[in-house]
Computed example of a mutant assay.
Amino acid sequence: MGKRFAFEFSLDEKAALFFEKSEERVRQASDNVVEATGMFWSDTAKTIARDDGHIDTGLYVNSIGYKTEFPSKDGVSLVDADGYVIHKKERDGDIVELQVGSSVEYADDLEKKYNIMARALDKTKEEMPKIAKKIIANKLFE
C-alpha cells in the first residue's frame, strides 16, 4: 500500500507577479521573433535582388516586406513603396503568421524567373532559430 502526502502552498507576491507577466512576455516574444525573422528574410531578399542586378528600379526592392529606400541602379531613390509592401501579421492562439513580400505587378514574374524570396529563405532559415533564441531570452528575462 502506497503512502500519500499532500500540502498546500502559495506563491509570494513577487513570484505570482512573475508568472502572471510570463504569459504576456511569451506572447510578445513570439510576436518579436516573427517580426525579426521576417525582416531578416526581407533584408536578404532585398540584398539578393539588388546584388543580382536583375532589377533596374528601386520599387520592387524597397517594397519587399517593409518600406526601405535603397537607390535604383541610376541612383534615384524610390521612397513611395507603401502601397506595394506586403507585411501582414496574424495571431491565431499560439500561432503567429507573417506574410512578407511585394505586390508590385511584376513581383510574381520576378519570383518565377529568379526565385528571390525562395533563395532568401534558403539563406536565412538556419540563422532564424538563433535569432529567435536571443529574442526570447531577452524578452523573457528583461
Rank of each mutant, 00 (worst) to 15 (best):
I95P: 02
E69D: 10
L140D: 04
L78E: 14
T37N: 06
D52M: 11
N32Q: 12
H54M: 05
Y84L: 06
E105C: 01
D52N: 14
G58C: 10
S22R: 08
I135N: 03
H87W: 03
V104Y: 05
A120L: 05
P71C: 04
N62F: 08
G83H: 09
I131W: 04
Q28M: 08
F70E: 09
D56M: 08
I64S: 03
V100G: 00
P71F: 03
K21R: 12
G53K: 11
L78N: 10
E97K: 15
D74P: 07
T44L: 03
V61H: 12
Y66K: 06
K130P: 09
E69H: 06
F70D: 13
W41R: 01
N32K: 14
V61P: 04
K46M: 06
I131S: 04
A137T: 10
K125E: 07
Y114M: 01
P129C: 01
M1I: 08
G2I: 10
A81L: 10
R27M: 11
I116L: 04
A81F: 02
V34T: 13
G2V: 13
Y114A: 06
E23M: 09
V33F: 03
G38L: 05
N115R: 07
E97A: 10
L78T: 12
A81T: 08
F40V: 06
T57F: 08
F141Q: 10
I55A: 01
D92V: 11
K130W: 06
K133V: 00
F70A: 09
I48G: 12
Q28T: 05
E90M: 14
S77Q: 15
E20K: 13
D108K: 13
K73W: 03
D31M: 14
P71E: 10
